[in-house]
Design a protein around this nucleic acid. Structure first.
Lengths: 134, 134
DNA sequence: ATTGACGTTCCAGCGGCTGGAATCCCCACA
DNA sequence: TGTGGGGATTCCAGCCGCTGGAACGTCAAT
């Protein structure tokens, strides 16, 4: 199956990095078009489908929510798109990430500071619990 | 109801910061003990329950998973605990946060770099989509 | 003919809530 | 005493993005 033009779901999965279960899920969720079917009712994928799956996979790895992945895919396919719209989505995501990172960092530092105060031995005294207890 | 010793769920919610729905959820999930009931079958909370709820609330705000919150609560109540066990949980969480923060930061920087390359105007050309498309 | 590795569908569950429906209860006011 | 409104109660559904499993069909190789 080296130059397969038509392939099964697991082959498409291997080539795209998206697991079969997830491919079906994306189809059901309307992120990708329902796959063509071969005579045995198996889903049949070609290189172009794999390309799409790869796109989705990369977008997901960049943490875009599925809704945005769908939107990006639409933009990708629409050659008359405005790059403004793409950038807008990207910057929205960056802003979201920045907020989340700031949150997590604040939490991380707070806990690390408390843990530093804690002896961490056999004794019960512990600033972490004191803090949580108020 | 300023110095109420016994109170309803919404009062406990107001005092602890945990919404009524969430209090019920915590009870159902076994994080907190089933509340006492008054004659009308309403849940009845006292100051000590509120204290517990506050503990849970703070632990959650620090991002501890519910399982760990339950464990922390057990440690909090067990005066024979070893601070070692508390610190261990805390440091595990810090490590987890560090991993997550690193992930998000990498993603953030990648998208920000791509967005910077993107003109963001009426034209279709866009490095973000080029990247996602491979 | 049988095995075993695929494929298919559908349903359940993860974490941590949150919203809604249907019902019940209490209290204030007329 | 009726009524209205704001609680409380239960249970079920849904959010996000999968992931695992059951029950069954299909295919290639032995």
């Amino acid at each position: 199956m080296k130059t397969a033009e038509i392939m099964t779901i697991s082959e498409a999965a291997a080539r795209s990095g998206v697991p079969p279960k997830t491919i079906r899920f994306y189809e059901e969720a309307g992120i990708i078009e329902p796959a063509a079917r071969s005579e045995n009712r198996y889903r049949a994928y070609d290189d172009s489908d794999v390309h799409t799956l790869r796109f989705v996979h990369r977008a997901r790895r960049l943490g875009f929510p599925l809704k945005d992945v769908a939107a990006l895919l639409d933009l990708y396919r629409n050659t008359k798109r405005a790059s403004r719209d793409v950038k807008k989505l990207a910057l929205k995501h960056v802003a979201q990430l920045d907020r989340r990172i700031a949150e997590l960092t604040a939490i991380r530092d707070a806990i690390a500071a408390l843990a530093k105060q804690c002896q961490g031995d056999h004794r019960p005294e512990c600033p972490i619990l004191n803090e949580l207890g108020g």
